[in-house]
Simulated scan of single mutants.
Amino acid sequence: MEERQPLWDATQTRILDAADALIERRGVHGVTIAELARRADLSRPTIYRNWSDADDVVRAALLRRVDGILSTFSADARTRTALVDDVLRFTTLFRSDPLYGRLLADEPEAFTRYTLQRVGSSQRMILRWLARAISSAQGDGSVRPGEPQEIAVMLLLIAQSAVLSHGTVADLISEAAWERELRAALDGLLRP
């Protein structure tokens, strides 16, 4: 069943805005219900009516960031080349996002916990986007046959691994070479 796009009401938006500011300033460990309430100028019970704990708020804030990045893509790619271009553009936007950039640079263990230890809402949103584009590009013959969802999973794994490891290998490979090699890996996975 297709998951719905998240919609946040005005109160939830205030809470998520507070979470964004706390994560950017202090990291995920600085996000507490008390701090969220203070920064959003809301009561703790109001926050608990929307999320069960601070961890859930962090997950929702990160989901909202992914949703924001994906909303910059006006349409799904229809060719392999356009799909690879979109994935590379997504990785650039993701790495430069203030929240995800902070996690990648300063809290890689938190990045791993929130994005790699389980497939959460953010990854499912990305997988739906990738599967639609893969299916479309299969229609024009530029992407190999296969189950779009399964190909999307592997595409996500490659891109996530490259993004997570980028800082580790930055002294070994230039930014241009990193992008070129990631492009080759993605293109190779999709090529008929």
Score class of each variant (00 low, 15 high):
E3I: 12
Q5R: 12
P6K: 06
L7K: 14
W8C: 01
A10F: 14
A10S: 12
Q12G: 07
R14C: 05
I15D: 01
L16K: 14
D17G: 09
D17W: 10
A18Q: 02
A19T: 03
A19C: 06
D20M: 00
D20T: 04
D20S: 00
L22V: 04
E24L: 09
E24Y: 12
R26C: 09
H29M: 05
G30E: 10
G30S: 04
G30P: 07
T32I: 06
A34V: 01
L36S: 01
A37L: 07
A37C: 00
A40S: 06
Y48K: 05
N50Y: 13
W51Q: 03
W51E: 03
A54H: 08
D55P: 00
D55Q: 13
V58A: 01
A60N: 08
R64F: 14
R64V: 07
V66Q: 15
D67E: 15
G68P: 05
I69D: 02
L70C: 06
S71Q: 13
S71I: 02
T72V: 10
F73L: 08
F73S: 13
S74D: 15
A75G: 07
D76T: 14
T79N: 05
T81Y: 12
V84I: 07
V87D: 11
V87G: 12
L88T: 02
F90G: 02
T92D: 14
L93D: 09
R95H: 09
D97R: 03
P98H: 11
L99Y: 09
G101I: 02
P108L: 01
L116Q: 13
V119H: 08
G120A: 08
G120Y: 09
S121K: 13
Q123K: 12
M125K: 14
L127I: 04
L127H: 11
R128S: 09
L130M: 11
L130R: 03
A131W: 03
R132H: 08
I134C: 01
S136Q: 15
Q138F: 08
G139V: 08
G139I: 06
G141H: 00
G141Q: 00
S142G: 00
S142T: 06
R144C: 06
E150L: 09
V153Q: 14
L155W: 12
L156F: 15
Q160M: 03
Q160L: 05
A162W: 13
V163I: 14
V163N: 03
L164G: 01
H166I: 06
G167M: 04
G167H: 11
A170D: 15
D171S: 15
E175W: 12
A176P: 00
E181L: 09
E181I: 02
L182N: 06
L182G: 04
L182Q: 07
L186Y: 04
G188T: 11
L190R: 01
L190A: 02
P192L: 02
